[in-house]
């Protein structure tokens, strides 16, 4: 028997499940109210096309991606230096690290009500919660990355007398870990984005998901979820490629 094409072996199960869903929905389900709650894959596809045509989907993607970029960007700008400091200077590092470690177990989503109180409803609040969630992850990852630079490498550079060399040695050594931390930070931002948008945004993928419930058009919810997954995956792949490049030239 000829070997199955790679696409089938990879996606066969997914396709089969979708087919079962569509068939089952069309034949087994008789209560019309079910359509209000569980849309068929075909309905979802149609809804996706409609939302893409009228620009809603693109607008939502742009808004959400913008928020993630801004939040993660802020987190990286602040978090990488802080993480490096924590790993490099023991006493100052401990002072900075201790409060962060205290706060870390509280899921970022739990902060949402407080951020609403402080920043009001709007973009600043969205940015605050995304940046905060990503910050914790970026700091932790950067600390590990910088602390993981082999001391032998550093002392060798130091012995050679070159302070600049220290930088030229430490930074590339830590870079892969920092890249991983940034990637995780962005992933966390996407993770928390939904919660942030649920509570107080007027446009975005999270809003799209919520609208599906509010309007009782669950197809819209699934379209939002799918787009969210796609965006998260795309950014993650892009960052992974970047991480690989950085890892390669060190």
């Amino acid at each position: 028997m000829a070997p199955l094409s790679p696409a089938v072996t990879r996606w066969g199960l997914v396709a089969a499940l979708l087919g079962l869903w569509e068939l089952g929905g069309r034949t087994l389900v008789t209560d019309p109210r079910t359509a209000l709650f569980l849309p068929l894959p075909s309905t979802i596809a149609l809804a996706a096309a409609a939302l893409a045509r009228d620009g809603t989907l693109l607008a939502a993607i742009v808004r959400s991606a913008g928020r993630v970029a801004a939040g993660a960007g802020a987190a990286v700008l602040v978090g990488v230096p802080v993480g490096a400091v924590i790993a490099t200077w023991p006493r100052l590092g401990a002072a900075l690290d201790a409060p962060l470690r205290l706060v870390r177990p509280v899921p970022p989503v739990a902060w949402v009500p407080l951020t609403l109180l402080w920043f009001g409803v709007g973009e600043r609040q969205q940015l605050a919660i995304l940046a905060f969630a990503a910050l914790l992850v970026v700091v932790a990852g950067t600390t590990d990355a910088v602390a993981g630079v082999p001391p032998a490498l550093l002392s060798a550079a130091r012995n050679l007398g070159e302070r600049r060399l220290l930088l030229r040695v430490a930074v590339p050594a830590a870079l892969p870990g920092v890249a991983a931390a940034v990637r995780e930070g962005v992933g966390t931002a996407w993770f928390v984005l939904v919660a942030a948008e649920f509570v107080s945004a007027s446009e975005g993928l999270g809003v799209l998901i919520l609208e599906g419930r509010d309007l009782l058009e669950p197809a819209r919810t699934f379209v939002g979820m799918g787009a969210l997954a796609a965006c998260g995956a795309v950014t993650d792949l892009a960052l992974a490629a970047l991480q690989r490049r950085w890892t390669r030239w060190t």
């Binding site: 996606w11 709650f37 998901i209 919520l210 669950p218």
Partner: peptide, 24 residues
């Protein structure tokens, strides 16, 4: 490969995004 692909798809959706549908 098969299940892994399914998992990759599902994993990309933040769990929280399921709440509206699950509420329904």
């Amino acid at each position: 490969r098969q299940v892994g692909s399914l998992l990759t798809l599902l994993r990309a959706i933040p769990p929280f995004a399921w709440t509206p549908i699950l509420l329904l």
